[in-house]
Write a protein that binds this DNA or RNA. Structure first.
Lengths: 116, 116
DNA sequence: GATTACATGTGTGTTTTACATGTAGGTGGG
DNA sequence: CCCACCTACATGTAAAACACACATGTAATC
């Protein structure tokens, strides 16, 4: 976004949907589409990109941070249910720690901005 | 960073060096190298990339958010001194507002993470 | 006069994010 | 029954942001 005379500012945290995802999954197992609908409440974005969401979920699974199983039978297309592993919970805690540091940095900035 | 079994988390705010830059310039005009040394205290990063810093400065200037003048005479190489414009100050305030929202989102996340 | 430090840049590849599109089963209407 | 639409999962690709490496010139200092 640097240069088109536009300069829209959002102050997004990089890959914030990732810890949000992990937090939702710690609360209870869920399938992708469900997470897609629950995420905006946490991220503040109006919507989250599906493509990236599923990619992150698969990558998380590859590294053993979540597990998944196919849930058939119910009406509608088969759902892939994701569940957080112990490793995944550890990652979530790392994210929380990093986010705490990030928040403190923002606070420092804001205090300095108000002029103190 | 998604996929190589690595999952390093930093929770950086996107383009955070930009508002940091503007804040420093509001405090007083400065040249690039000076900003480079002052930035880590605000951003929390060990160092800031020069290339990107100068690119951001030029882009800001292109859009009238900062102005610059060459300062010769003094010992050492000529310095390009950057100064914040009124437009630039307005942008800084927008950033501050966005950062406040971002901090509140993080707080919401953290509270939900502690389980409340 | 070679080396080091200051100061300003450019070039290029990687990572992250956004946008567009594709597949496929189930549901309800005409 | 077949067409439109919804749910659910997935890939392709391009733009944005970022990091790493390199290039240039001036001046102090050894």
């Amino acid at each position: 976004m640097v240069h088109p005379g536009h300069w829209g500012v959002r102050a997004r945290v990089e890959r914030f949907s990732e810890p949000a995802l992990l937090l939702l999954l710690r609360e209870r197992p869920a399938h992708g589409y469900e997470l897609l609908e629950a995420l905006p409440a946490l991220t503040g974005e109006s919507r989250v990109d599906m493509g990236n969401l599923y990619r992150v979920l698969r990558a998380l699974e590859e590294d053993g941070l979540v597990t998944s199983r196919w849930e058939a039978g119910e009406p509608g297309p088969a759902k892939r249910i994701y569940e957080l592993t112990t490793e995944g919970k550890r990652l979530l805690d790392e994210w929380a720690a990093a986010l705490r540091r990030s928040r403190d940095r923002i606070d420092t900035f804001l205090e300095r901005h108000e002029g103190r």
